[in-house]
Amino acid sequence: MPIIVNLDVVLATRKMRLGELAERTGITVSNLSILKTGKAKAVRFSTLEAICSALDCQPGDLLQYIPEDKSPQ
């Protein structure tokens, strides 16, 4: 998938664990883990807003688009 979630990177730079983020946002550790590992199929804006608020970051700090290789095989 060409969308990469950099939640682990932002957490590391903030020296915060997933459990602390869960407490600050009200989002379960399980749901944050799904997002962190890139297994999420969608993200609600309210979830993104809560994470950005707790981590004092922008959505672009958390999400990155990397195009798939389109070269012929």
Rank of each mutant, 00 (worst) to 15 (best):
23 E>A: 13
49 E>V: 10
61 D>L: 04
17 R>L: 09
48 L>S: 08
54 A>N: 07
48 L>N: 02
2 P>M: 12
30 S>T: 12
69 D>V: 01
17 R>F: 05
57 C>V: 07
12 A>V: 05
34 I>K: 15
29 V>R: 11
34 I>P: 00
67 P>E: 07
44 R>E: 14
18 L>T: 04
20 E>C: 03
49 E>Y: 13
12 A>P: 02
53 S>M: 09
60 G>D: 12
46 S>G: 04
34 I>S: 04
45 F>G: 09
16 M>S: 04
3 I>C: 06
4 I>Y: 11
26 G>I: 11
37 T>W: 04
21 L>M: 04
13 T>N: 10
6 N>F: 04
41 K>D: 15
71 S>M: 08
46 S>M: 13
2 P>E: 06
47 T>W: 06
17 R>P: 00
22 A>Y: 03
29 V>D: 05
2 P>A: 10
59 P>Q: 15
20 E>M: 05
12 A>F: 01
52 C>P: 06
57 C>H: 05
32 L>G: 00
36 K>T: 10
12 A>K: 15
17 R>K: 07
38 G>D: 02
27 I>R: 02
15 K>C: 05
4 I>N: 11
20 E>I: 02
23 E>I: 02
14 R>M: 10
23 E>K: 15
24 R>M: 10
10 V>F: 02
19 G>S: 12
8 D>R: 14
63 L>V: 09
36 K>N: 10
29 V>Q: 12
7 L>V: 10
71 S>E: 10
26 G>R: 10
47 T>Q: 11
57 C>A: 09
